[in-house]
Simulated scan of single mutants.
Amino acid sequence: MNSTKQLIIKYLLSHCDEWVSEKDLFFETHLDYEEIFQIINNLKENEGYKIIVRKDRYYKFLNNYSLKTDIINFYSQYKFSNNLLVFKKVDSTQKLAKRISQKNTLKEPSIIVTDEQTKGYGRHGRHFYSPSVTGLYFSIIFPNWSNNLSKNELLTIDIAVIVIKVLERFFPDEDFKLKWVNDIYLKNFKVAGIITDIFSKTDGSNNLIVGIGINLTTKKFPKYLVHKATGINGQININRNKLLAQILQEIIDHHRSPKHFLNDYRKRSMILGKKITIQLGNSVMKCTAQRIEENGYLTVKDRFGNLKTYSAGEIVRIKW
């Protein structure tokens, strides 16, 4: 973080919701007072930063609803500042990640974040409702990925636990649950989903693209989702930049030093011991969820008492 603008943003963020004088900023940046005023005015008027400016030129930086690269980098301690792209609106972060993968040779994990998706999708290509400002929608590209089914399954489980643990810190009163394999639920409504895509490049290498969508404060949903999805809490102003930064930081740290969270996943499972209906390709089966195996697979007991283990499938109903 070298530019004078970024130095000012960093200092204001370090004193968020506090009054900061031009004198403070002068000692921090060594800019003259008029230049400081012009930079802050530009941040406020042209770049959408929420800054209160007093007549005596004291400044107060407020929690921003919009996602900003500089703010995310600040909260993540600049761990991936060169590999972070933030947009106001895209068709889909997954689709954009695939286009970036096709055109570029990446060496480090890269992150695409947006305030809104017009064609966001989840498993089986189903539409993921992604309205502006009320959620988090992002994809992470892991380059040169070895396409191993069991490894991919465990990564999805690990990321689901990472996301839910961060959400628990920001929403300590909520009881989040996991539906095998990649959905996060609250009070029997879906609040987040995770999707993994393998993108095969023309040079024979693979990129793993992990997409995550979280409904934070979303209140209004299309009719087909009213009884299926909800926002976590529509009554509070959550710091989306800080929440996103912590999720990204923990996922990237996990990628660099992997460890598995199967026990944490099992503790938060909403299906174990329950009667479920699972869709397997074109067929469905009623059974009882028995356990999550060490490789992340699901073992169930069918109506004849036989144990069966599956690496993939979709749970379409849970009997409470």
Rank of each mutant, 00 (worst) to 15 (best):
T196S: 15
D197W: 08
I198Q: 05
I198H: 04
I198N: 08
F199Q: 08
F199L: 09
F199H: 15
K201C: 10
K201Y: 06
T202N: 13
D203M: 12
D203R: 10
D203L: 10
D203Q: 11
S205E: 11
S205A: 09
N206Q: 06
N207G: 09
L208N: 10
I209Q: 06
I212M: 10
G213P: 08
I214M: 09
N215W: 02
L216D: 02
L216N: 11
T218G: 00
T218Y: 00
T218P: 07
K219Y: 00
K220F: 13
K220I: 15
K220M: 08
F221I: 05
F221C: 09
F221Q: 06
F221A: 09
P222N: 05
K223Y: 14
Y224C: 01
L225N: 09
V226P: 06
H227D: 15
H227V: 01
K228A: 09
K228I: 14
A229H: 02
T230G: 06
T230L: 04
G231H: 04
I232P: 05
I232Y: 10
G234M: 10
G234Y: 10
Q235T: 14
I236S: 01
I236T: 12
I238C: 04
N239Y: 02
N239I: 00
R240S: 08
R240Y: 01
R240V: 02
R240A: 06
R240Q: 07
N241D: 06
N241Y: 08
K242F: 06
K242P: 00
L243P: 00
A245E: 05
A245K: 10
Q246C: 03
I247S: 07
I247Q: 00
L248G: 05
L248W: 04
L248P: 02
Q249W: 01
E250Y: 07
I251L: 09
D253H: 10
D253W: 06
H254R: 04
H254I: 07
H254Y: 12
R256N: 13
S257T: 14
S257L: 11
S257H: 13
P258D: 08
P258T: 03
K259I: 05
K259V: 03
K259G: 04
H260T: 07
F261S: 00
F261C: 05
F261I: 01
L262E: 05
L262W: 03
N263M: 10
N263D: 13
D264L: 07
Y265C: 06
R266Q: 07
R266I: 15
K267Q: 12
R268M: 12
R268C: 00
R268Y: 01
S269E: 00
S269Q: 00
I271A: 00
I271E: 04
G273S: 11
G273D: 09
K275W: 03
I276Y: 04
T277H: 02
T277W: 01
T277L: 11
T277C: 14
I278D: 03
L280S: 02
L280C: 02
N282L: 14
S283L: 13
S283N: 12
S283H: 10
S283K: 15
M285R: 11
K286L: 03
T288D: 04
Q290L: 14
Q290M: 15
Q290D: 13
Q290C: 13
R291H: 09
R291Q: 11
R291Y: 11
E293H: 06
E294I: 13
E294M: 12
